[in-house]
Structure formats: C-alpha cells, structure tokens
C-alpha cells in the first residue's frame, strides 16, 4: 500500500495552510475533508483581521484558498475519516471502507460542538457503543436503542434491525427517518443515559426507555474518540508550541487546539504543524 508522508485531516484554514507548506517542502501528502472547503468558513459574514484582506467575506476567502490550492496542484480527497490508529511507526486512517497509511498525521478538523450525553462515557463498553458493525454480534436478539445525530446513521439502525427484534431509534436531527418496520422511531430529545442495574436506560424529556444496549452515532466525533489514546483537554487536543500532540508523529492545529477561534491563528498553526511534521520525518530518516 502507498504510504503518505503526511495525512492532513480537515480543509479549513489550518489544514489548507499545512497542505501548502508540506507540498512546498516536497512531502507526499493526502488532504482529507469536505471539498467545499470549510463550511464554517463560507458562513462567515465578514473577516477584518486576516492580513492582506482588510474586509473579506468567508466565501471570498474560501475562493482565494481554492485558487491557491489549484495553482499548486493540491487536490482534496472527500472522505470522512472515522478513526486514526497509532500503529507505532505509522498511522492507519479509516476513511470510509478504505484504510489509508501515513507516516505522520496533522489533525485540523476544527472543534466539535456538542458534549457527550450525561452518563455516556461512564457506560462506554458497558452498554454504550459507538460502532454498530463492531458490536452487533454481542447484542443479537436483544432490544437496543440508537441515538443518531444525522440521517447517515439510518443505515446502521436498519442493519441492527436485521439481528435485533426491536430497535428504538432516537433521531437527534430534523427530518423524517426512513427505516424498516421493526425500528420504532421515537422523536424525543434524549437527555441522559443511565445504567442502574446492568441494563441501560435511555432518558428523554418525556420518559425512560429500558434497553440492553445503546448505540450513540455521531457525525463528528471528539478528538479522543477519533484518535484512541490521544491526550485531550475537553474538546481540544493538548499540543505544545510545535503543535506536537501526546502521540509522536501526530500534530494538531487550528480550532481543535483551543481558543482563540480565529482564521489567521488557524492558518499560522497549520504552517507550524507542517514544518514540525517535516522535521519529524527528516529526523526519522536520519536515525534509520
């Protein structure tokens, strides 16, 4: 399998600047993320502190970024990365069905809004799961609940309904889910998960639902969940001035490292992260 020097996850100012700098330094990169650049960027009304652009809209800035990428021949791979595994001397990235290998990783995914549900983390692995495909065989024949944060998770619920007699589906998004008959759609807001006596309880504003297991499926995952073993501080990745995380070879930049959430700060950190990744690669080459 082809192994990249640097895999960059995220297409906001931090990820794009990291990509530009890494390419200038002749590294083989893969840039992963939404192709429409940062959706958040396009939403900004006016930015007044991005050097060289006294008054620019997010959309204009995104256009300028796009032009920069095109001129350097940098493409975007529009895959969602669901997990990054630190394998020792390289990283394995789960992107859809595919596994991508890279010597280093730069995390620039932005900050994940939204906290875990009360009781969710405490029951992880003891009734709460994040992976329906992984843990399906352990809940065969049982009543399970799915707390879903986007319509993309409906296929997971449909899959569970093939092996579980009853699936309770709690859509935490707008719209009408399309699901098989034995999936009971409960349009109530989930407020907490509890594990009173070995079984799980899904609590909503209206009532409590007892089940054997709960699958919490989110569109965006917290950094510690995306990269198992990574040191985090709340929603942020712990980094030093060189943008190095607690895992050697993994760097983070932009909003994911903490406030201030500013475009120019994100781009600056992207530049540092790429240069740190380059020196990490060079040092490793020398010691081999």
């Amino acid at each position: 399998m082809e192994r990249y020097d640097i895999a960059i996850i995220g297409t906001g100012p931090a990820g794009l600047e990291a990509a530009v700098t890494a390419v200038i330094r002749n590294k083989k990169i893969i840039l992963l993320g939404p192709e429409d650049l940062s959706r958040k960027l396009a939403r900004a009304h006016e930015i007044r502190n991005y050097l060289g652009f006294p008054a620019v809209s997010g959309e204009e800035l995104a256009g300028a970024f796009r032009g920069h990428l095109d001129r350097m021949g940098i493409g975007i791979t529009a895959e969602r990365v669901s997990a990054v595994y630190a394998m020792g001397d390289y990283f394995a990235l789960q992107a859809g069905e595919e596994m991508i290998e890279a010597a280093t990783v730069i995390l620039a995914t932005g900050v994940v809004q939204g906290k875990p549900l009360p009781g969710e983390e405490e029951a992880l692995g003891h009734g709460v799961s994040y992976c329906a495909t992984c843990d399906a065989s352990l809940v065969r024949g049982k009543t399970v609940a799915v707390v879903a944060y986007s319509a993309a998770e409906e296929s997971e619920a449909a899959f569970l309904s093939e092996i579980c007699p009853e699936v309770l589906y709690f859509p935490m998004y707008a719209g009408t889910p399309a699901l098989p008959e034995n999936v009971r759609i409960i349009p109530e807001k989930v407020t907490a998960l509890e594990r009173p006596d070995g079984k799980m309880l899904v609590k909503t504003e209206k009532m409590d639902y007892p089940v054997e297991a709960v699958f919490v499926l989110r569109d965006a995952v917290a950094p510690g969940q995306l990269v198992p073993g990574l040191e985090t501080e709340g929603a942020h990745v712990r980094v030093n001035r060189r943008m190095e995380s607690s895992l050697p070879g993994l760097f983070a930049c932009g909003d994911i490292t903490g406030t201030p959430y500013q475009y120019i700060k994100a781009a600056g950190e992207g530049n540092i992260a790429a240069l740190s990744a380059v020196s990490y690669l060079d040092e490793r080459k020398r010691s081999n």
């Binding site: 997990a83 595994y85 394998m87 394995a92 789960q94 992976c131 495909t133 992984c134 843990d135 065989s137 198992p228």
Partner: peptide, 12 residues
Amino acid sequence: ATWCGPCRMLAP
C-alpha cells in the same frame, strides 16, 4: 470479531 475494524488494527 473478524468484521470489526478496530479489532483488526489492535491485533498487531
């Protein structure tokens, strides 16, 4: 389990 991605990565 054979069908679990994280399991395959943890094995090595």
